[in-house]
Design a protein around this nucleic acid. Structure first.
Length: 559
RNA sequence: UGGGGCGUGGCCAAGUGGUUAAGGCACCGGGUUUUGAUCCCGGCAUCGGAGGUUCGAAUCCUCCCGCCCCAGCCA
């Protein structure tokens, strides 16, 4: 939006030309999800394209529910979609529209086409209709009902509408060309019978319009100037244009197609995502491993980073697969700039500082962010007993300083924002595991360089043993093991990563995080970015403090 | 196979006859650093193939190869 240097894409070129030629006065787009599932990262790109263009050209973008198939749709999805759109694009003030609001208008346009001799009620069943349609290489043949009178079709359509005809017995079809090389033009279905209540129109209708008979007209009603959809609809464009050309519409919208977003290691198909939910492979649509907007939100991915990522994507006609690393880059980039720092010891081991008085307590005031003064400061209580991570300690004194920049027995390490300490000895429990590390501080090293002769191997994070909070940490890995989980004849369920969720209890976090809220972003130093989980269903003790790992820090060091 | 669309480095992608073929991600070196993070510096392609047009082509033409979409009363 603010990138002046960013080259304009082919849709913007079209819009510029339309504006210049005066064929378009106001740019109106729409984001038209079917409420049959939750929105995912692929929809995010479409949202950014449509809302972004509307904003850029000072136009408008409607959120329009394409609710033409009550068999698959549900009100739950409508609410979830609205919530996700508002979260992703908070400044949006546009209209919420529904295809179902236009059902009456659509019906009278169907009658119009019948009267024009351009539509007819067909009594071919599904099997016969397929037979008559022909194949990719053979033309179809005309339905025996194609030439029935307008008055007869009109009467039949009314009977279909009021429920006097059984499902599957009849359809309303457009009379176009059964020999068209484009199969979509071989007398496509405009209305089919579904004796089913609709979540918004109740049982008023027993017939529902098809996507093709609805979409262009919806656009025309809303004065959409540029109807932007994905590549797979390109073959439907001639049909879209046919309805626009043959109906007395209030405006003449045009359809443009761009490549949808595909990400490796992820599946973005509402059908498959729904299957993951329905078969309990994940906890729900908002499971933090899901590529859904709600899952990403719960995971701790910011709306800003999603927008930045989508903005980095090309709006073009190529359909490629974007590397998940590109998305992760934008997630880290935003969190690095905006997340407050904190310390959390995920795998704690007790450290007792023998030369630090047991009743002494210090508070170190440290910045919330290394280079963002506006993010304030926080206070770190220090005491004679602290926790560090087991992985940050080793008894192997042969480890080189370059290879292991942490605490080694007999050697020094810097406690982040605090003292340099030396590990002196270890205490083991009955099983032989280290239960405690005995260490000592090097005095006067807080905020000071190490004295002559002492060199810390590195910097590690820690937390006061007495003044810290217990928490659970959930670490996520990619949901699928394969870059293309659903490629070819692969069953994507076979490629689910069995270790995609790791729940670690008994972690120790600085006390300040006791009132962290879901949606607050933190960087647990040397670990990664975290946010409080909005639902801690896996916790053993009810409303325990639990954090989701949004993403780990980049890790360039090779062991 | 009929129709539609697409092929620029490992990935995404600018480029619209004259540029040393942008940029980002990833990766590989090096520097800074009280986060093995961040940050900084450097490295990393002749454009699906073959012909042709032209003084000059990733950009124009021809043929070939590959990939995607369409045969739901789904969207």
């Amino acid at each position: 939006m603010t990138d002046i240097d960013k080259p304009i894409n082919f849709i913007q070129q079209v819009i510029n030309a339309d504006l210049e030629a005066g064929t378009v006065k106001k740019v109106i787009t729409r984001f038209p999800p079917e409420p049959n599932g939750y929105l995912h990262i692929g929809h995010a790109k479409s949202i950014c394209v449509n809302f972004g263009i509307a904003e850029q050209y000072d136009g408008a973008c409607n959120l329009r529910f394409d609710d033409t198939n009550p068999a698959k749709e549900d009100e739950e999805y409508v609410h979830a979609i609205i919530e996700d759109v508002r979260w992703l694009w908070p400044q949006w003030q546009g209209d919420i529209c529904y295809a179902s609001n236009y059902f009456d208008q659509l019906y009278s346009w169907a009658q119009y086409l019948i009267n024009e001799g351009k539509a007819y009620v067909c009594e071919l069943n599904a099997v016969d209709m397929r037979e008559y349609r022909g194949t990719l290489t053979e033309v179809g043949k005309n339905s025996p009902f194609r030439d029935r009178s307008a008055s007869e079709s009109l009467a039949l359509l009314e009977q279909m509408k009021v429920g006097e005809i059984d499902e599957g017995r009849m359809t309303l079809r457009a009379k176009i060309d059964m020999a068209s090389p484009n199969i979509n033009m071989r007398d496509p279905v405009m209305y089919r019978i579904k004796k089913m209540a609709h979540q918004r129109t109740g049982d008023k209708w027993n017939i529902y319009p098809s996507y093709d008979f609805a979409h262009g007209q919806e656009d025309a009603i809303e004065a959409v100037s540029h109807s932007i959809c994905t590549l797979e609809f390109a073959a439907n464009r001639p049909l879209y244009e046919w309805f626009v050309a043959n109906l007395p519409l209030p405006s003449t919208p045009h359809q443009y197609e761009f490549g949808r977003l595909n990400l490796n290691y992820t599946v973005t198909s509402k059908r498959k995502l729904k299957q993951l939910v329905d078969e309990n492979h994940v906890e729900g649509w908002d499971d933090p491993r899901m590529p859904t907007i709600s899952g990403l939100r719960r995971r701790g991915v910011s709306a800003h980073s999603i927008r930045e990522f989508c903005d980095s994507l090309a709006v073009a006609k190529t359909d490629g697969v974007v590397d998940i690393a590109q998305f992760e880059h934008f997630i880290r980039d935003d969190l690095n700039n905006n997340a407050c720092r904190a310390m959390c010891v995920i795998n704690p081991v007790l450290v007792t500082l023998t030369n630090y008085s047991a009743d002494k307590n210090e508070e170190f005031v440290v910045p919330g962010h290394p280079n963002r003064d506006d993010l304030g400061e926080r206070s770190l209580p220090f005491s004679s007993q602290i926790y560090i991570d087991r992985n940050d300690f080793s008894e192997d004194t042969t480890l080189s300083r370059k290879k292991f920049k942490r605490l080694v027995i007999g050697d020094y390490v810097r406690l982040r924002s605090a003292y340099i300490i030396r590990a002196d000895e270890v205490i083991r429990d009955a099983s032989g595991e280290i239960s405690e590390i005995i260490a000592s501080i090097v005095p006067d090293t807080v905020g000071q360089d190490a004295p002559e002769g002492i060199k810390a191997r590195g910097v590690i994070h820690w937390v006061s043993a007495s003044k810290s909070a217990d928490c659970t940490v959930k670490i996520y890995d990619r949901l699928f093991n394969k870059a293309a989980p659903d490629a070819g004849d692969e069953n994507f369920l076979d490629n689910i990563n069995p270790e995609s969720l790791k729940v670690i209890e008994g972690c120790k976090v600085e006390v300040g995080l006791l009132d962290a809220q879901a949606g607050d972003h933190y960087q647990f130093e040397r670990e990664g970015y975290f946010t409080r989980d909005s639902k801690s269903t896996r916790d053993s003790k009810g409303s325990e403090l639990a954090f989701n790992c949004t993403i780990g820090l980049r890790d360039n060091w090779k062991a």
